[in-house]
């Protein structure tokens, strides 16, 4: 593997190596403003490599791997190389990050308070975070939120945002073209396009915030609001975490504290505009003019 790149995103410093120049060039361009690992030390390593030696040139097939691999995962065509690189990096974080509790969630911040959005793939949490992050919110991450077990804060992990299908056009109307990667067609999830977060998300990547509101969005559902009790929120958050079990009692305690302090609401919505209205209304309702921290605790 002759092509490599290292970067730091929040507390996570990674290396990625590739058999091909193309995906690394895309990463270099899209992650141009990101810092290098402190002292040059990366704690996770990802690879994208030829599934078989000849598949580097002949009908190139990209396998995803690194410190952690998924046996029998199907390789991707080279035209999806950037997607493969992002998937390889996600895999390393999901399997290997143990310094905070990983939540499969998107997160945005305003006035030092964090809105967490938890949902399965297709729930729209990523699009919603991207839209809010173009408005008067700061994007913390669209894929993983890192829960600090000591102080209960959410730490940013602002990787490239993975936009899918209609969401691509919606965001391309609002953000500078230089922030987008190539449109990748024909993936199992349809079209995918990666977008670099806004400059404030990158420059403030070491600045976390206290969680203030927890949403469970569901795109395409009736726009009903349902308060989610702490018990259900707890279960859904453990299900969305890859390292909850291994972090033991510290994770249990931190998560317990989180769900007891945080208002949690499941929301259905039909469009981005509608979702933003709901989010703003819930945010204002729950935070009001006062500091939510005192209201909730």
């Amino acid at each position: 593997m002759t092509h490599g790149f290292a970067l730091r995103v929040g507390p996570v410093a990674m290396r990625i190596f590739s058999d091909w120049a193309g995906p690394i060039a895309d990463l270099r361009r899209l992650y141009a403003d990101y810092p290098q690992p402190d002292d040059g030390v990366a704690s996770l390593t990802a690879h994208i490599g030829a599934a078989r030696p000849w598949r580097r040139w002949l009908r190139p097939a990209v396998s995803i791997g690194g410190d952690f691999t998924i046996p029998d995962a199907l390789p991707l065509p080279l035209s999806q190389g950037l997607l493969a690189a992002e998937m390889a990096m996600n895999l390393q974080v999901a399997m290997g990050w143990r310094q905070q509790m990983l939540l499969h969630a998107s997160a945005v911040e305003r006035d030092g308070r964090v809105l967490l959005m938890v949902g399965a793939s297709g729930s729209g949490k990523s699009t919603l975070a991207a839209l809010l992050g173009e408005g008067d919110w700061r994007l913390l991450g669209d894929e993983f939120a890192l829960l600090d077990l000591e102080n209960g804060n959410i730490l940013p992990f602002p990787r490239l945002i993975s936009l899918k299908n209609q969401a691509i056009n919606v965001l391309q109307d609002r953000a500078d073209p230089s922030r987008f990667g190539p449109r990748i067609t024909g993936t199992p999830k349809g079209d995918i396009c990666h977008m670099r977060p806004r400059a404030d998300a990158i420059s403030r990547m070491d600045e976390g915030g206290a969680p203030a509101l927890l949403l469970f969005p569901a795109f395409g559902s009736d726009n009903a609001l349902r308060p989610v009790p702490p018990s259900e929120a707890f279960f859904r958050l453990t299900e969305s975490s890859t390292n909850y079990v291994g972090l033991g009692e510290a994770a249990f305690t931190a998560l317990n504290r989180l769900v007891r302090a945080l208002p949690a609401v499941a929301i259905g919505y039909q469009s981005g505009e509608q979702a933003i209205e709901i989010v703003e209304a819930l945010w204002n309702e729950n935070l009001g003019n006062e500091n939510l921290g005192s209201a909730a605790r």
Binding site: P37, D39, G40, V41, A42, T45, D67, G96
Partner: peptide
């Protein structure tokens, strides 16, 4: 730094 990165990866 790069030697630490490699050491961490092989140790894992």
């Amino acid at each position: 730094g790069d030697q630490w990165s490699a050491l961490i990866s092989v140790a894992r």
